[in-house]
Design a protein around this nucleic acid. Structure first.
Lengths: 111, 111
DNA sequence: CTCAATACCTTGACAATCTAGGCATCCTGG
DNA sequence: CCAGGATGCCTAGATTGTCAAGGTATTGAG
């Protein structure tokens, strides 16, 4: 019981999303698939978390949206990193790495 | 703006707490100090998160409490890992490491 | 013609953290 | 002596992000 689900994503999803936009613009659905694939299926991104996150990031000015077409030629909303988004990504990546190191340090410490 | 605070702790605090009890019993206040120290002050544990987490873990049967005295001879509630808590710790540590690897893999991936 | 995949979106419940308070004891500095 | 910090426990309330579960529309394959 008490399957924790992926509450671990809390506070990390935004950074993950930003990181998928480093190269070229992507649309929401593609971001989710990319994250899952790139993590070796270790991460699963729910759309109910994804789209609100995209609005959040857009509202914060980290990303910008524009309607266009996907690789399959379908109507899709393409997101691109803004300069602020790029800084945020760098900052949050550093923050995550520091946090991750700290946690590992504790969890893997000798008795 | 939008200082994220430590929302990164979400879903990790419980595991961190359990890990502090691997050796010998500890009391709440001591757990917080230990985590902060052991992480090189990278983690900061708020009491408003700590005590509810301890109740949570106790209710789940992962830890047991007993009133006693601290190293300074003061009244303190000492928590100890139960066998279930030990299994949970191992399981959650694995889970966290897998998640952490996945996130790092994405964040540090080539463009 | 049906079903899965692609692609977007929303509502409501839930759970965990933080802020900001509270209490009591002890020790140390001034 | 006494003020304040450290130790130690606790709680109420607000906030916030995730999830489950639904919805729409289009395309392509079988």
């Amino acid at each position: 019981m008490a399957e924790p689900g992926n509450d671990l994503l809390r506070g990390t999803l935004d950074t993950l999303i930003l990181s998928t936009l480093r190269g070229s613009p992507r649309h929401g659905y593609g971001i989710a698939r990319w994250l899952e694939q790139r993590s070796g299926e270790a991460l699963s991104i729910e759309e109910g978390s994804l789209y609100p996150a995209l609005y959040r990031l857009e509202r914060q000015g980290a990303i910008e949206a524009e309607w266009g077409t996907s690789e399959l030629g379908r109507r899709a909303k393409l997101y691109r990193l803004t300069p602020q988004g790029h800084s945020a990504l760098e900052r949050d990546t550093e923050r995550w790495l520091a946090f991750s190191r700290a946690v590992s340090q504790v969890l893997l410490a000798e008795a």
